[in-house]
Simulated scan of single mutants.
Amino acid sequence: MKKTELKERLSQYSIDILNLENFHDKLAPAIMGYADLLFEEFDVNGSAGREHIQTLNGNAIGTFWAANCIREIFRTQRFSRALYSSVLGAIGKNRRPIHVLYAGTGPFAALALPIMMMLKPEDVQFTFLEINPESIEILEQVIDLFDLHAYVKNIHQCDASLWDVPSSGIDIVISETMSRALIAEPQVAIMLNLASQLPKEVVFLPEEIKVSLCKLTRGSREPERIAELINFNKESIYSIIENSSMRNWNFNDQNIQANLSEGDQLYFMTEIRINDGNILNLNDSSLNLLEKIKVNRKQGVINLNIKYALDKRPGFRVIEK
């Protein structure tokens, strides 16, 4: 297929993905078509692409797995739409072009392509950060195929949780390097590292990631919230930075009491507000699936100490008291 035809397909998918309606008839076909277009043109199925890269602050998922995240309909729609609306909002306030730092692009920079289809290079410029060399190689092919060089300031192969920002001329930071309950992947470390080097007026997407302790009673579909464990937003990001030094990020612990009846199960629940109008709640995506918590005591009053921690496998540490 000719480049022009491919770009026309990409443009039409972008229009449908960025549509302001939360659900419409063209949404699922657009997301699937978008994914199929990229998978048809680029090979992400190699064995190397299925291997994660272990960092000091969590797993950077393999190229194949990162690429497949596109197929999650609400996840791709709402992250892309949030980025688009943030860029449009910044154009009204800031110098142009708006400079977006996209940390953890995977092989396709899938959240950025729809924005490039809708705006001009004079409106928006991207700096891409990606740790995986295979993903970088495919990303460069994507930029070539769709003639997007004019939108790309820089591509850095690096660990975004440790990367030194060369200049503060950045308007928006977006990273979607996370799993449910902020486990395993380096989202928190990446955002803290970048925020610690950037002015407070920079927009960070997602704007808020909330993880709560909840319990689910057997036969019930709705979990009961027991306590909010973290509300990872700009305010808390800068509070953590102020109370930490040298990228040794400190998190507060909480003592929480839970009362379990027979058949109750404790879980972490994740809610994400990427920005206003773009929200992912329970079961909207794999990021919002409940994460089971293992405790020894199954019934009665349980006293727990819970604290988020960053290391090779980030997540909440739960201690029964």
Rank of each mutant, 00 (worst) to 15 (best):
A160D: 02
G169Y: 03
N45R: 12
K200D: 14
V87H: 07
S86K: 04
I274G: 03
D171E: 13
L20M: 06
E235I: 15
F79L: 02
K7L: 13
A150V: 00
V203Q: 14
A160V: 05
A181R: 04
T217A: 15
R297H: 12
L182Q: 02
F23V: 06
L113P: 02
C69W: 01
E201Q: 13
I170C: 08
Q125E: 14
P199L: 15
S236V: 12
N278K: 03
F316C: 01
G169V: 03
I274Q: 05
A67N: 07
S212F: 04
K307L: 08
R81M: 09
R221S: 13
Q125W: 00
K2T: 14
A110I: 10
F268E: 05
I115C: 10
S14W: 04
N305L: 02
L129S: 07
D276I: 09
I155W: 03
P206D: 09
L139W: 04
E222F: 12
F79K: 03
V165S: 06
D43L: 00
K234H: 12
N45K: 11
E320D: 01
K2G: 10
K26D: 13
S179F: 07
W65T: 05
N59D: 15
F64L: 08
R218P: 00
F108P: 01
S11C: 07
G89R: 06
L139Q: 10
A66P: 05
P114S: 13
I241C: 11
E208G: 00
I241P: 10
A195P: 01
E130P: 06
P166H: 06
L287P: 12
V318Q: 06
D284P: 00
P199V: 14
G58R: 11
G263K: 13
F108E: 02
I319T: 05
L304Y: 09
E122H: 09
S245R: 11
A48N: 12
F74V: 00
Q254L: 15
S14E: 05
V211L: 13
